[in-house]
Design a protein around this nucleic acid. Sequence first.
DNA 1: TTGTATGCGTTATCAT
DNA 2: ATGATAACGCATACAA
Lengths: 341, 341
Amino acid sequence: MNLKQLADHLKLSPTTVSRALNGYPEVSEKTRNRVLAAAEANHYHPSHHATRLAKGKAHVIAHVVPLSVHTMINPHFSDFIAGAGLTYAKAGYDMILRVVMESEEEAVYRSFAKDGRVDGVIVHGPRVGDTRIALLQDLGLPFVVHGRTMADDADYSWLDVNNFRAFERATNFLLDLGHQKIALVNGFEDMVFAARRRDGYLKALKDAGIPIDPEIMFSSEMVEPQGYQALKKVLKQAKAPTAILLSSILPALGAVRAIHEAGLVPGKDVSLVVFDDQLSFLQNSGDIPMFTSLRSSIHDAGTRVAEMLLSKINQPDSGFCHELWEAEFVLGSSTARPPQA
Amino acid sequence: MNLKQLADHLKLSPTTVSRALNGYPEVSEKTRNRVLAAAEANHYHPSHHATRLAKGKAHVIAHVVPLSVHTMINPHFSDFIAGAGLTYAKAGYDMILRVVMESEEEAVYRSFAKDGRVDGVIVHGPRVGDTRIALLQDLGLPFVVHGRTMADDADYSWLDVNNFRAFERATNFLLDLGHQKIALVNGFEDMVFAARRRDGYLKALKDAGIPIDPEIMFSSEMVEPQGYQALKKVLKQAKAPTAILLSSILPALGAVRAIHEAGLVPGKDVSLVVFDDQLSFLQNSGDIPMFTSLRSSIHDAGTRVAEMLLSKINQPDSGFCHELWEAEFVLGSSTARPPQA
DNA sequence: TTGTATGCGTTATCAT
DNA sequence: ATGATAACGCATACAA
């Protein structure tokens, strides 16, 4: 059943039926009710593509996820997408998830910009020297970035966590406790967020006059085995670190496993500070949380980024929007003074 | 630049240009090359909605995820979606992720069925007494179920893991080792997969003549704290279980944490068998994996379910397709004979 | 308040 | 091998 058939059935013109359905004021209450009832009774749903073609708006947001070396569809991503997805749904937007090989990514953006199937996109996980932002600016496709580049971040909209400050702060906290040897278990440092975290860590060490030791700095995918393997290595070093800074709860769990296997106690023999994205399935909460952490909800970030994009789409001339969130410091039971101090 | 403009530019009719672009055989090679070159040069991309309207096919698959009591967007889901998404992309399909409140779920399916915006849907996590399957059959919208109902599973397509057998087998393995008291840390048992797992566990206990103890059976969301809390409870019981059967690696990590805190050693004082979805960020691998497990890749399931749906859409009369995957038993280092045996 | 005519950008049908 | 014309199903400017 399409609009014309419904109109014929009601002995009205398609125009009037369309107006009644879309809430135009000029149609009489009587007619509107007749139309609404008939639409309901006949399970009428307007054709999506016809509507979009006529209106010129897609009501769709795309998230393009490059399925590259380090898989982007990970638990961090799923919590982010849950927040964003709910926001879209509430606003009547659909969310397209487009998994692409890295080589096709540019072509996908180009077609999105031209074929009108989406109104905007979210850019995930900007890398150092990322070319996507310039491309999207060039294409004129509305976008918001979760994260930002290393510089030149004024001429596009983004939401980011102050990763530099969070890790500088975490390092200082450990230094204040008396730790002199602090390891870093970081994500891939070609990702901007990870690079900034490293820089915050290095800055704090430098300010404290502590030499950098590449042997206790790790950078790879933030998964459980990462933390396990890093601690296996580090714990057998002659002068092992007494504290570890980790980029996610996932490697932190692996770290705890390795520490236990070595017959040591986390939060006593080895201190751990973790960046906590508040992943819904790994709640680090309770009165005294398991981990001392810097906390910022990636779910909330997804919600907010989605809101930013929607308002950008509905008010194209509203200028750029920047939000830098400070992570919250939370004292847990994974930190103490170093053993010998 | 649209088709007409491109045609004018080339001094050809839109028809010919369309044919050249879509690979119809009747257009001359010379013309085709001219058209292709001009399209490239002018960054021409056909309007998505116009194409879909004219063709009557959406080239879109939807995954409807009810954001209900137990959040469906979890790490299991994200690995599933990664597999499915890549399959769609390869086949030139888009994937819509629609997050819905449970109350609107039916309305969403109804509109999808009528408005032509999607060609088919994937049904996630069927519950006991799930009404979605009957609804979709009624609506005539192509679908494939990941999982299946408790009965009547002949008249729709599904892919499932043999959860009953996996848990029966795991229980028998522990019984054979000499364990008499085996706890179960399960997902929500209103989900069919969890109900089947429980039934497999109960069957094995019954066959061995071991009484059921509700005090050591847990059913809730499969997250890290679930395993932690369950083991906290269980370990302080007078006659504590010597083995635990867990529905996911996530609670297993929590279980390990609780065991360590109690000063015990997993795989020695307490044995653990885990259902391992092979979550990409928690690899339970290596020569001797951390956990003894029943293994079945949820990523591969996503891939296969997507393939099934696509072939169903392209051959609507091909009948129903059923795949029951057996989980692979993998011996790890988390199991041993019970301490006193 | 309702209807007519036209456009949205393609593909499909039928000529030539 | 190419073109004119009619769908596809809706929205909207303009008329009545």
